[in-house]
Amino acid sequence: MEVTININGTPETHDVEPRLLLVHFIREKAGLRGTHWGCDTSNCGTCVVWLDGKPVKSCTVFAAMADGRSVRTVEGLEQGGKLDPVQEGFMECHGLQCGFCTPGMLMTSRALLDANPDPTETEIREAISGQLCRCTGYENIVRSVRWAAEKEASTEEVTA
């Protein structure tokens, strides 16, 4: 079947089997390898992308179910050659070591800050509780998200 998914603003049309998972459509058909494919059981969350604006685990959605809908992946965070503040935060605060969980963590963190620009540590931990990181012990991820929140708050003050 023919499936068209708008990924980061670009329509991707491919002929696929209905059983193709969204994560494989993104990686193999659209060639966007930033989204990682991990546990395949909706536990680890490295495959998280946005589907119509909401973070979902793309290993647990068929590409066919996303036909005609919009997806945002980690490649879509950078805007106009500038990294998103959450990406900067992960660099500044060492929010990754091996980097395997990072794409999912970034997408969930961006969604969190859009909904809640000043999250507490507990709220950050809650938001990423469906995702696994085996390097950082989560401490640096939490710091990275707080860094991004503070950067965005200070940028807003300057522009205001």
């Binding site: 969350g45 998280v48 589907l51 685990k57 959605v61 809650e126 509780s129 469906g130």
Partner: peptide, 9 residues
């Protein structure tokens, strides 16, 4: 129930 990302779908 599940986790926040699973709850979205």
């Amino acid at each position: 129930i599940a986790d926040p990302v699973v709850r979205n779908f």
